[in-house]
Each structure stands twice: as C-alpha cells, then as structure tokens.
Amino acid sequence: MILKGKTYRAGENVNTDVILPGRWCHLTDEGELAKHCMEDYDADFLKKIKPGDIIIAGDNFGCGSSREVAPLSIKSAGIGAVVAKSFARIFFRNSINIGLPIFESPECVYATKAGDELEIDVFGGKIKNKTRKKEFSFVPFPPFMQTIIEKGGLKGWVMEKLRQG
C-alpha cells in the first residue's frame, strides 16, 4: 500500500480543540466535519490542501480532548496521512480505529518542508521525500494493530469477535 501526496506543515502540540473546535463537536456527518477541519489552527487550511495531501507535524499531535471527530474531520477533508514526530495516545488510537493512516517519523518531519512530495510505503515502513530525494524509515505497527489496519479499522475486529460468539 503506497500513499502519495504533497505536504501541509503543522507545528508542535497541535491539540484537538484547534483541529475540530468544541462548537462543532455535535456534528457527526463527515461532509460537515470536513468543512471545519483545522479551523482554529489555520483558517485557510482547506484552501491550502488537495485530496491525498499529507500533514506533517511535530510532537504530541492530537493532544487534549478525546473527540474522535478530530481525526474524522481530517480524514473527511481528504487528507491521506499524517506524519508526526509523535502522537497523543487517544488521537493515535482513534486514527487506527477509523482508518486514518498515521506514522511516527521525527527524521522525516525534520527534513520535510511545506509542499514537498512524499511517498509512503505503509507496510514496508518507508517514507520517500521525492522533492528532496531522501528516504526515511518508521517502526511498523505492532502485529495486533497491523491486524486492525488490515481489517479496515476496529469494525473488522468487532465483526470477527461477534462471529466467534
């Protein structure tokens, strides 16, 4: 599985309050959520991105509130993946559960600028920065999480549990 896209650059400790502000937390429709993605972080975010683009961020991306609408709004806005130095744990969990591809690679974050073209080999554990002709590796997910990802999110896991009774 290969993901390709241009990068949008975000900073350190981007919290879920700015990714999807509390005033929109009552929304569940993905189209509506997409309209408010990153609204309080960068009011022009949606103008700057195209489907498949990749967010590059610093440490602790997605910290704060557990709102699943935060990663869901990113996915719904068409973002193909998020690469950060590190993720806050609930955001990490939520992203795996809903099928938003996320990767931890500090080296890639340090070396990548806004607008660079990336190519991510999801299961091979490699990220290529095609603009700067550099390659980085990331630690693949532990086997249990790989299973969830391969089943297309937590839904697959639940279905199997229920089938087994």
């Binding site: 699943e68 969990r93 559960n97 809903i98 937590l154 839904k155 639940v158």
Partner: peptide, 8 residues
Amino acid sequence: VGSTDIAA
C-alpha cells in the same frame, strides 16, 4: 478513548 472504541 474514542467513539469507535466505545461502540466496540
């Protein structure tokens, strides 16, 4: 956790 975890 998130909503999907709760549903599960």
